[in-house]
Design a protein around this nucleic acid. Sequence first.
DNA 1: CCCATGTATGCCCGTTCATGCCCACATCGA
DNA 2: TCGATGTGGGCATGAACGGGCATACATGGG
Lengths: 253, 253
Amino acid sequence: MYAPERQQEILRLARDGGRVDVVSLAEEFQVTAETIRRDLKALDRAGLLRRVHGGAIPAGRLDFEPDLAERETTAADEKDRIAKAALAELPEEGTMILDAGTTVARLAGALPLEASLTVVTHSLPIAARLADHPGVQLHLIGGRVRHRTRAAVDAWALRAYGEIRADVVFLAANGFSAEHGLTTPDLAEAAVKRAALAAARRVVLLADSAKHGQEHFARFGGLDEVDLLITDSGLSPEDATAIERGGTEVLCV
Amino acid sequence: MYAPERQQEILRLARDGGRVDVVSLAEEFQVTAETIRRDLKALDRAGLLRRVHGGAIPAGRLDFEPDLAERETTAADEKDRIAKAALAELPEEGTMILDAGTTVARLAGALPLEASLTVVTHSLPIAARLADHPGVQLHLIGGRVRHRTRAAVDAWALRAYGEIRADVVFLAANGFSAEHGLTTPDLAEAAVKRAALAAARRVVLLADSAKHGQEHFARFGGLDEVDLLITDSGLSPEDATAIERGGTEVLCV
DNA sequence: CCCATGTATGCCCGTTCATGCCCACATCGA
DNA sequence: TCGATGTGGGCATGAACGGGCATACATGGG
C-alpha cells in the first residue's frame, strides 16, 4: 500500500469515525507509529485533519480553534503581559485596527467592558470575540479567508484598509529585527498587514521576544515604521537599545 | 477522549446550559478536577468561556445571549430538518452565498466534510464555522457588524455583494408571506439581504413555518423572487399552494 | 547494466505532553 | 470571621512525539 493511499484511507476513517488514533492506525495498516505520525502530519499540513496528542480529528469538526488554543500555550504568560501592557495604548473613544495574531487576540479579549471604541479587524477570531462587546463598534474587513490564520486577505481587504484612517494599529509579526524588519510567512497576509500599517497614525507592534531575529518569507515593513514595540523581558537590553536608536520606543514587560 | 474533544464538549455544554461547573464536568468525563480546570483555562484563554469560581460561563453571554440561546432552541428540530433538506440544493463545485440566520448556520454546520465549494457570507458565526472546513473556499463580506445578529452590514457589504455572482443564495427571513414578501426588523440588514439576493442566480429561502404570515419593519424582497422555499410541515397545504401559484417551489420537510 | 539520487519506512532516544496527586493559598458563604 | 470549597503551582509518570540515522527499494541517467 502506497503512502497516499494510506493517507486517503486514514482521512476516510477519520471522517467516518470522527477521530483516529495513532496506535490503532499503526496496527490497522501494519506500519509503525512513526509512519502514521508522518501521515497525520502531512494531512494536518494539507488542512484536512487536526492533529491532537495521540491522534487526529477531521478538520471542520471543531468549532473552536485548537491550533489557536494550542499556540496559546507557547509563551502564554508573555503574551498576556504584552496584551495587558497594550491596554495602556488604547485611544480614548478613538478608532483602532487589530491585526490577526494570538497576542492581539489576547488584547481583544482583555478590552475593558466599559471601553468605548471603534475597532477594525480582518481577523475572524478577533471579530468573534468583539462582536458582543457592548462598547465596541466593530467593523469587519472582508476578503478571502485563509484557513490557517482565519484572517481575510486579498483585494477586498486591501481596498477596505485603503479607505480608512485609524488612530492606532496593533500589529503582529512572526519575525522582527532591526535589519530585516517585520516578516510573516505568507505573501497575501503580508500585503494586508502593510495596508493596515499604512492606515493608522500610530503603529504598535506586539511581539514576544522569541520573534526577535526571526525572518520569514514575506516582509511587510521596517521596524522604523513602528512607533512602539511591546515585548517581554526576553529581549536583551542591547537589542532593545539598538531598536530604540532606530526611533522605535521599546517597552519590555 | 482527547483534550480538544473534551474541550469542545465542555463548550457545547456551557452554551447549552448557560453554565458549567468543575466537579460535574470532572464526574461527567471521568477525569480529575485539575484536568477540567486546565480545560477551562484553555477555553478561557481562547476567549470562548469566562472562568468563574467553581466553573465557567460562555463568553459574552451577559447582554445579548438569552435572545440567541432562546432562538437556537426554538423550533430546533424543524430548523435541523430544513437545513438537512437544503443540503440537496447545494451546487456541485459551485459558489453559494449564506445569509445570516440560525437555520442557515445549521446548514453551514451540516456541510459534508468532503464537499468542495466556494462560500460567501457576511455572517460572523457562519464564517467561524466554515473557516476550518477543508473543502470550503471562504470569502468574508466585510462591513459594520451588528451586535444582535453578528452580521456585517452597510456600504462595504453592499458593494462586495454587488461585485459577485453566485450560483445560489440560501436566505433567511424573520417573516414571509405571499402578500408582504420577505421582511426582517432591521433596515441595514434588509439592504444586505437584498444585495445578496440580487447576487445569486437561484434563491432558496430557509424559514420554519412559524415565520409565515409574520411581518417585520424592513422588506427586502417578494416571495416571487424566491425560487425555492424550504419550510416545515407546519405550513398549511393551502398556504403552500398559494405560494406555489406565485411561481415559488415549496418543500415542506 | 550500474551507480547516484531520492523516497518511504523503521529504529533509537532525548524531549514534550496530558494527567494525576499533593499542598499552600485564595475565595465564598454563613 | 471561620470553615468549606475551589485554585494554582510543583512534581511525577507514562505515553506520545520528533529529529537523526540506517535500510531498503524505486528511479533515472549514462
